[in-house]
Amino acid sequence: MGYYLRKLAFYLTALWAAVTLNFVIPRMLPGNPVDILMAKLQQRGGSVDPAARTAYETLLGTGGRESFAEEYFAYLGNLLRGELGVSVSAFPAKVSDVIGDALPWTVVLVGLATLLSFLLGVGLGAVVGWKRGTWLDALVPATTVLSAVPYFWLALILVALLSSGLGWFPLNGGYDVVLDPGWSPEFIGSAIYHGTLPALTIVISSIGGWLLGMRNMMVSAMSEDYVLTARAKGLTDSRTMIRYAARNAVLPSVAGFATSLGFVVSGSIVTEQVFSYPGIGSKLLQAVQNNDYALMQGIFLVITIAVLGANLVVDLLYGLIDARTRDRSTVS
């Protein structure tokens, strides 16, 4: 089986596992989410007809009226049709609409911040590893200690200092509320202005991991024979560093993207909460606080799919930058 097919198969398995987990969790844990949801729905003036109840039961469990398999297939069917139910916290909006509104904010914020953090961390790590034995070594413990700081705490301190104190950045929100969301320059500018501090928090807290990983691999790569050969060949330092040492040292960082992305996504959920950012993390918490189980599950699924998708892209890229992977998997 080819490398790409194997990867695709793996991510399909992971997706299936996530979907199934989503199905099993509400059925395994204590409490009666459907009743709570119906009560909430009633409070909000929604229809409490049997159809609404059935929809929730498909999602969260019928309490044993239908067989597990029947429930499971009904649930999968709903997912395939994109029906995630009705949100009670944002009633009468559908879960899919709530997610659709919030998702772009998070994807752009977390996506850009992660990319920035990865590029900066890997770039700095390569230089720190290459210039080993200079003052740059101090960057390693410094940035790694930063990654042991809770995201939200750092975010709040930054808000207190830079927003409340110095007034450089807005306190919270994703854009200036007087503007109409759209593609107008004012709106985009405002979104960038509001997104800077949350992004900064994510970058500061996650850069250390990339930097440390890259630096360690760089140090290992520098004692490899191919780097020695490159030096013996009389190549320039920059060419040796980039084409030989860093080119090899970056591979584990790319391969380990999955591990790191999980942390970043987790951290950014809390960060969004701190900044009342209109992204999917705040929506998840809003759902939890309001017992909006349908929204909760929908968001979990979407986050998982996004993370899986990002990892799939990275893995496919990995196949491109390391020819050995493609060939190895055809043997074994």
């Binding site: 793996f10 991510y11 398995t13 992971a14 596992a17 996530a18 987990l21 989503n22 969790i25 509400p26 844990l29 204590p30 409490g31 989410p33 999955a258 591990t259 992305l261 999980g262 996504v265 987790s266 951290g267 959920i269 809390v270 998840l284 918490l285 759902a287 939890v288 017992n291 189980y293 909760m296 599950q297 968001i299 979990f300 986050i303 998982t304 993370v307 899986l308 990892n311």
Partner: peptide
């Protein structure tokens, strides 16, 4: 396979969902 699947499923969102389903007093 199991470890890799657990690795790519983001942890904190899952924890939040689980915590959300378990009533606070439990």
């Amino acid at each position: 396979l199991f470890s890799n699947v657990m690795l790519v499923i983001p942890g904190l969102p899952l924890v939040i969902v689980v915590a959300g389903f378990v009533p606070a007093d439990q």
